[in-house]
């Protein structure tokens, strides 16, 4: 139990962030109309590309001779970036179609 208390104290701010982001996420996303649910999903794809940050940090910290980390990290950057660019571009393509209103 003591380890739990220590853990809780140490990561208190993180726990706040976690809980408030969950609440905020549900609040914001429940306001998205059904018409836009597909763009929401592809936009979410783009945002989940945020894992690219982890890949960047991994490659930056890797030893220049550690080809295991570099190779997989490189691959991680490729995957993350595909999501980021692909997600935002295709979402924009869709939302542009919704933008056109009656003439």
């Amino acid at each position: 139990m003591d380890t739990f208390f220590v853990f809780f104290d140490k990561y208190l701010i993180l726990i706040y962030l976690l809980i408030f982001t969950i609440i905020l996420g549900f609040e914001v996303i429940s306001k998205v109309p059904t018409v836009l649910h597909t763009p929401l999903m592809s936009g979410a794809n783009a945002i989940s590309g945020v894992v690219i940050i982890g890949a960047i940090l991994l490659v930056r910290a890797a030893d220049p001779n550690d080809y295991f980390s570099l190779g997989l990290g490189f691959f991680g950057v490729v995957l993350g970036m595909t999501n980021v660019i692909g997600g935002f571009v295709v979402t924009d393509r869709m939302l542009e179609m919704f933008k056109k209103k009656k003439k």
Partner: peptide, 15 residues
């Protein structure tokens, strides 16, 4: 990394 955490949770909530 807080940024990854926030982005990931938003997507998790949406899904």
């Amino acid at each position: 990394n807080n940024m990854m955490l926030v982005g990931g949770i938003l997507v998790g909530a949406s899904g």
